[in-house]
Structure formats: C-alpha cells, structure tokens
Design a protein around this nucleic acid. Structure first.
Lengths: 379, 379
DNA sequence: CTGAAAGCGCTTACAG
DNA sequence: CTGAAAGCGCTTACAG
C-alpha cells in the first residue's frame, strides 16, 4: 500500500536538501550525475510521487488538464475522451473533466469557463465540440490561457484546433454515390452554424459540380444532427413529386441517417434498393443498424490524442516564456482583468486537419460486409 | 474575464482577517452574521473562488473526486459517468478521471491505485466496473480511504456499493419469455467471475424453477459479455438436435444478444419468429438493431448519481471523525503502511440496489414499438 | 554543483 | 466573535 512520503523524507534518505530533490524531480540541470542517480533510485524505491497540489501551489503551475465536454449524449465523446485519457496517461498530468449539464447550460457556458479559470486548477483546457462555448474559449485563448479546440472549429479560426477534413470526407462520400450511378443525391446538412456542417456541404457541392450536376435546393435540407431531424428531412424529400425524389441521401451525421432508415422502414422504402444512404461519423452503432450504414469515419481517438499533445506543447511553451522572458510575467499577465489584452499570436494558430475514410457497408448497395466484421466493431 | 483574487484580497476588502474569510468560506460557526453576510457579498461581487490546490494542501483534504473507469469500450460507461458528472457539478468538487488503458493494465491495476493514493490528489474514489481492480479497491477501503464501487460488486461484500438488482432483472426477463409460452429457454451467462453474472443466472433459475422447469445444462453457456461470445453461444445451442434447441434465449448482456442476432442473420433464423431474444443492460444501440432488442434496463445514470452521493457522505463522515476524534488522526492513519491495519467498519457496508425495468421491443414477438420511440432513444 | 530561506494561498490550533 | 502565527509540501530566486 502506497503511503504518503514527502520530499523531506526523500531528502533525508538521500542526504541532500529538498532543493536538490526538487531539481531532480523536475529534470533541472546542474545536479551531480551521481547525486541525481541516487535520488532517483530512492524515489523509485519509496514509490514517492510528489503532491500535485503542493507543486502546483509553489510553482504557480498545475499538473491538471481540463477537458470540457458538452453533454454525453453525443456518441463520439467517449472515443475522443478515450484518446485524450490515453495520451495524458503517459504524462505526469491528470485529467479533470468538466461537463455542460442542463443547469450550467442555462446559466450560460461562460460560467463554466469562469469557474475553470478562477479555481486556477488546470494548466490548460481541451474544449471538445465547444459549440456555443467557443466564443468563451476564444476569450481564454486571447488572455493567454492554453486552450485547444477539438472537432468543432471556431470561426474565424483563431484558436489552435484539431479536427477532421470534413470537406474531403463529404466529397468522398458523394463521389461514392456518384460512382454507383446516382444523380439525384440529396443532402441533409448539420446545423449550418457549425463550421463542420458548412464544410461538409461544400464537399457535397464540389463532388456534384465536378460531375456537372447543379445543386437542386429542393434536395438540401438543414437538420439538427439528431435522428428526428433526419426523419423529417427524409419526409420532406419523399413528399416531392416522384420524379424529383432523390435516389440517394448523404446525411451529415450518422444519427440523421438513422432517422432516414426509420422513415424508410415506416414507408416501405427499401434501403439500398430504392434509396442509397451514406452517413458521417462512423459511430459504433452504425455497424449494427440494418442495413449497416456506409459512412465517413472520423478519427475521433486520434483527434483526442493529437489535441492533447498540442495542448501540452502549448503549456510547455508558455511556461518557457514565463521563466525566460520575465519571471512572474505570465502570472501577472493572467491577472489583468478589464484591460483589453489581446496577445497577438504572431504565428497563425496551429490547425491540424486529419484525414477521414469511407467505411463501405450495406446501405449503398455494395455487398454486405461479413457479419464477423460487424461484430468486431461493437465488441 | 475572471481573474485570480486571493483570500487576502477579500480579507482586505472586507476589513477582516483572512481567518475570518476562511471561516465564512467553509461554513464554520462563530462568525458574526453581519460579518458573514458582508464577506459573502464581496466574495460574490469579486467572483472569488478559493484555490483548490491551496485549500487542499492546508486543510489536508482535497476537493477532487477520482473516478476510475475501465476502458471506454463498455457502452454503459458514458451513462454512468454522466450521472456522476451531473451530481458532482452541484457540489464544490471536481472530477478527476482515471482510466485503465492497455499500458496500465499490463502493469497491473494496482499501479493506478497506488498512483491515485500516492499523488494524494483526490478525496475519494468512485470505482466503476472495477472488475479485477476490486481487490485493490478493497485494500483502499480497508485503509480508510473513501471508496464506492459502482455496478460491479466485490465478493464477499465489504465495500460500499451501488448497483442494479440483477437477479430480479433476470427473473423478470425470463418470466416474460415464459409468459409468451416458451419452455426451452437458454441462457448466455456473463463471465461467472462477476457477481452480477451469477446473480443474473440465479434469477434465470428462479423463474424456471417457479414454473416447474428444471435447468438444462445444455442450454446454459458462459460468454464474455461481448458480441463474439454471444454468437458462439448461439452456435452451440443450434448444433443441438433440433428438438433440444431453445425457442428463446436470455442473454446476460445486450452485446451478447447482438451476437445472437448476427448468428441468426447468418443462418436464416427468424427473430422473433423462430427464436425469441432478451438482452440485459438496455444500452442505447439496442433500440437500433433489427429486430429491436427487448432488454432489461439498468439505471446507469442513477447509479452514478447515487454512488457520488454516497461517496460524498463517506468523505464528510471521515472528515468529521478526523476533527472530532483526534486531530491529525486520519492523516497519520493514512500513512501507516506495512502494519495490517484493518479498520473494521462496525456497521456493515452500505449497499444500494436499484430496480431494473424490462424494455419490451420487437425481439420477443411483442408488437414492434412505434418508430418514434426508437428514434427518441438515440437522439 | 548545493542549500537555507521565502513564499505559493489556504486552514487550523491557539490565544484573546 | 476575531486575528496572529504556524504550517501544509512543494518551488524558486539567491547566495555560496
């Protein structure tokens, strides 16, 4: 059973001062190699782990990383958090989870952000699918607080961001439908306030344009990313005169595609016989629905991993700055309140766009994948 | 933008000592009502939030709650964590997420537990589905560290625990199949090392017994909670002579039921026509598979909520003890290492068992639920 | 290369 | 009812 030793215990055991132990613990230079080695050995023997609270207090920094997620209702959140958790697990940091529940939402997301900042607990923040919070996150970033956006972009792009290549993913999906011979391809957009929805729409338009097909406004409907809005969109398309109906639908999210499947089931429309369907996201349940859904896979776990790595490097950099440029600078900087501080990051913000991949399953009329592979994707 | 004030700022603003501010902040008695009110007002005006790190260090306690989850591959984890996060959101605590990834798993879960204890960061731990970790968690509990188990029990029961009434849930499921006229009802067990698997099996036996049906060992197979093992179990059942095959299967988890559906799809077995199927868990995708799965719903969110409430009360209680019984007692107590400390909690450990409910869908031959309700459960 | 001392922002006996 | 002082376990100038 681990027990709580302090840095004093280690110092005594090693016959040095705690200053020296601290230096070793923090990989500072100017320690005799032998001394360093001896201390390291003792630290290991004793299973000593410094108190994060004390280190944070004294050093003015923290070993905690905040992760802000919207409610857990979005099916990609677990995958993203998984990637984050795994990456943080390899570092000395711990993960503090902040989530937006109904109560915090009604008070405005700004409260959560204020809270994150004022408790002064975390060294940086990963904002997953920030949505409406992104303007608060932007404020944080402008005040010098390390922040990274995951999945959902801000607009205009000012904050470091990791996400998928939405336009290219959408383009591939629609190309796939075109290759299968479809010409009347409808699109259910995600909410157009999201950059990713606009990018997916752009990919849709680009693919059609390249095939000399003009966009038919009757075949484009804005949804809400959820199943209900997908079903409504399908209803809209199928109340068109029969010769104007789509033969294929590209849904901006898997959940909206599920809504289309439900509509088809209700109305005896055969998928893929009468209607081909492609989703976006490749959440795990899309292998389970029938027909199994062809969809664009976003590398959610990798988004979490890369996002964490980027945040860590930003934090490191801002600490560098604090010690090299002017001691105490960053801390004072953080305390400035009303003044219109706007640190112009001279370099454009880091933006990493990860490739998507098309997962072909039964919903477009391709041969059904073997059942084993659909099992594997849920187990 | 929030900025970082300290308790000194508030003390100066209120014209009192920081001792008094601290007392107000911590709801201690013996403060003049007017003083208290004034301080509270200033705290609010300034948006002051005390530094959790400093408070933790000084007070020897922390405002952080650890949540230990196995990998995110289990579909109920998000629901449970959601319940936890929501409940913590109403308190002054923050949530620190620890997860077991492949690396930590190979080092043994003991490492994670040691790490949790030795960083001295969290005031208590919620262990979700601890599985193999539960013996480490037991050690924590025996050393006086506040711990609550969620979902998966320890055996024998020594640690506070919140879970579902597995036996009763299984009993209801099998009764449902019996009521539909089935007599050859198979069961795919979860891994029998888990208490919950044994309880579900017990519920299965109880229902059959009450109907004067004896358990046929050929109709009981142990699975691994995942889809592949469910498919294998179905294969085992359907290689029996045709008059000995089951007409219904009660799967110990939804994922195993998915495996049965896959097997049925492969072999042209109609569900529910040829075979009725019930699962256990009611994870969200069970509304999406076809036929939609009848299953036993576990109240995962509530498990998270109640578990958090229990942990909080245990922490409070142990702090009470620390200050009333003997100052410094708890802290010294925690540091004892080798000695075989075994605090006999004089009262039996708290155990809360929540009711399950049967969600009837298409897989048993009841009328199919309206599509709207299956949409609602995924959106 | 090393250590004594001050200090991070709080809490808690202790003394009034 | 209130405050001065010590201390939580660290880090960081500063001085050698």
């Amino acid at each position: 059973m681990a027990r709580k030793r302090t840095i004093d215990d280690i110092a005594r055991l090693a016959g040095v001062s705690k200053t020296t132990v601290s230096r070793v613990l923090n990989n500072k230079p100017d320690v005799d190699p032998n001394t360093r080695e001896r201390i390291l050995r003792i630290v290991k023997e004793e299973g000593f782990v410094p108190s994060a609270a004390a280190a944070g207090l004294a050093g003015g920094r923290s070993h905690l990383l905040g992760v802000l997620v919207p409610s857990f209702t979005w099916p990609m959140i677990p995958d993203i958090v998984c990637g984050i958790a795994e990456t943080i697990g390899n570092t000395a940091y711990e993960l503090v989870l902040y989530s937006l529940n109904d109560k915090t939402r009604e008070n405005g997301e700004g409260d959560v952000i204020d809270h994150i900042l004022s408790t002064n607990l975390v060294a940086g923040l990963l904002a997953v699918l920030p949505g409406q919070s992104s303007k608060f996150v932007l404020r944080l970033h402008q005040h010098g607080f390390p922040v990274v956006l995951i999945d959902d972009q801000d607009d205009p792009p000012l904050v470091p961001w990791i996400g998928a290549d939405n336009q290219c993913g959408a383009y591939d999906a629609v190309k796939h439908l075109l290759a299968l011979g479809h010409r009347r391809i409808a699109h259910i957009q995600g909410p157009m306030k999201y950059v990713c929805s606009r990018e997916r729409y752009e990919g849709y338009c680009q693919a059609l344009r390249e095939h000399g097909i003009s966009i038919d406004p009757a075949l484009v409907v804005e949804g809400a990313f959820d199943a209900i809005s997908g079903r409504e969109a399908a209803h809209t398309f199928f109340t068109l005169p029969s010769d104007q109906r789509p033969t294929a639908i590209f849904a901006g999210s898997d959940l909206m595609a599920y809504g289309v499947l439900t509509f088809a089931e209700e109305h005896g429309i055969d998928v893929p016989g009468d209607l081909a369907l492609v989703g976006f996201d490749a959440i795990s349940s899309s292998a389970l629905v029938r027909p199994a859904l062809t969809t664009v896979k976003q590398p959610f776990q990798e988004m979490g991993q890369r996002g964490t790595e980027v945040l860590l490097s930003i934090i490191e950099q801002s600490e560098q700055q604090r010690f090299n440029v002017k001691p105490g600078f960053a801390r004072d900087f953080m305390r400035l309140s009303s003044a219109g501080i706007d640190e112009p990051s001279h370099s454009p913000p880091l933006r990493i766009q990860l490739a998507t991949s098309l997962v072909v399953r039964a919903s477009c009329g391709m041969r059904q994948r073997s059942p084993i592979s659909s099992i594997e994707s849920v187990s």
